[in-house]
Design a protein around this nucleic acid. Structure first.
Lengths: 211, 211
DNA sequence: TAGATTGTTAATCGATTAACAATC
DNA sequence: TAGATTGTTAATCGATTAACAATC
């Protein structure tokens, strides 16, 4: 899929979902083809950048014609690994953990929560949708016995690192971290941290410094 | 605060909260001073970058000595606009909206939710902590009658744009958007969108393309 | 074929890193 | 003072944009 020995920059990777999202909207509207120029006007990237980005993964377009919306949409989905599903677990079943468990958009994209964990006895045994909240002590065994692809950390910042270690030790290769701290993990484990506070502080900065 | 006519890049702005977070940890540990070199080893940015970044806002350090932890922590807080508080409203009182309303870390940083809004009659009238969920139709008036600095959008993607318009029309200057769509707003309104799905898809990509 | 638009190379721009004089 | 470390300029690196030949 990726051109041989090509090194894709994170900047490109993070733009791919946006392409896919706009293509999905075009698809819903019944659009069959689109040029990089028109896509550029929709998304707000330059046409040049769009062509550069896509060409990291091969020539999806046709000269003189543009891109076929459905074909490109599917291709980007495949590049992103959205052509199959992932099992996930959510650790920390507080408000945020429950919100994520209830967010069916992730299911639709193939990210299936198969278990939740917490240390709070009041939560253990409850179900969110049909996902059982289990004792956090059982997490390691659960991961071993089930194919868990992605671990989602919704704990306090104090617990996040040790949770990540249990995940990595038991073979999870992807960690999505919502705890407001940076996490250390082996180099073969992908860690993506969503720093909600940092995003909010950016607004604060921009409000303060006019504009 | 910012050096005259200096243009601060978004890359720099987005690193500031991370500096602040590490300085906060150092402060808790009782550290009084730190050099850019040691901070570099903690955070993982180069010492050179740290000094460059900070010097966008003035000389906080002392040659031969380094930076005073507390002083720098406070200075960055002030640069980020965290030296005063903001009133916020949360629109969409579903799981995510409630999770944000319950997330007291934002309160601690000075972001105070003073109202929530939804269209669901089952939710209207309920309180999350002490924040009342009101009818979404009342949002415009509420904004006019209260000083609302930041509007937080936790609605579906279909409703997000019209909610943003009500916010902007009534004088809100900062929008934090969690709906999975891009929002148009007047140029004097800051919009920060958190694309949770896009963050998740990045993990998927990295899992697929080895490491 | 002529027109349109890609794929790709070259030019530009901006961000990061290195180096070092200034100075505490 | 000598040593350490900043503030800042210069060099490098990488990402974006422009240009255009290839080609549908």
């Amino acid at each position: 899929m990726i051109k041989e020995n090509a090194k894709i920059s994170m900047a490109v990777i993070r733009r791919l979902p946006k392409y896919r999202r706009y293509l999905s909207e075009l698809l819903e509207k019944g659009r069959e083809r689109i040029s990089s120029k028109e896509l550029s006007e929709l998304i707000g990237f330059t046409a040049s950048q769009i062509r550069q980005d896509l060409n990291n993964f091969g020539g999806f377009g046709q000269q003189g014609y543009g891109y076929k919306v459905e074909e490109l949409y599917k291709a980007i989905g495949k590049i992103l690994g959205l052509d199959h599903s992932y099992n996930t677990i959510i650790v920390g079943a507080g408000n945020l953990g429950q919100a994520i468990a209830n967010y069916t958009n992730f299911d639709k994209a193939g990210f299936i929560p198969i278990g939740m964990f917490d240390i709070n006895p009041k939560l253990i045994g409850l179900k969110i949708r049909d996902i059982e909240i289990m004792d956090a002590d059982l997490m390691g065994d659960f991961i071993k016995q089930n194919k868990v692809d992605i671990g989602i950390i919704c704990t306090s910042k104090e617990k996040a690192q040790s949770v990540a270690e249990v995940m990595a030790t038991n073979g999870i290769k992807g960690i999505w971290n919502f705890a407001p701290t940076d996490i250390q993990a082996p180099s073969d484990v992908v860690v993506e941290t969503v720093h909600l506070s940092e995003s909010l502080y950016t607004i604060s900065f921009l409000l303060k410094h006019h504009e």
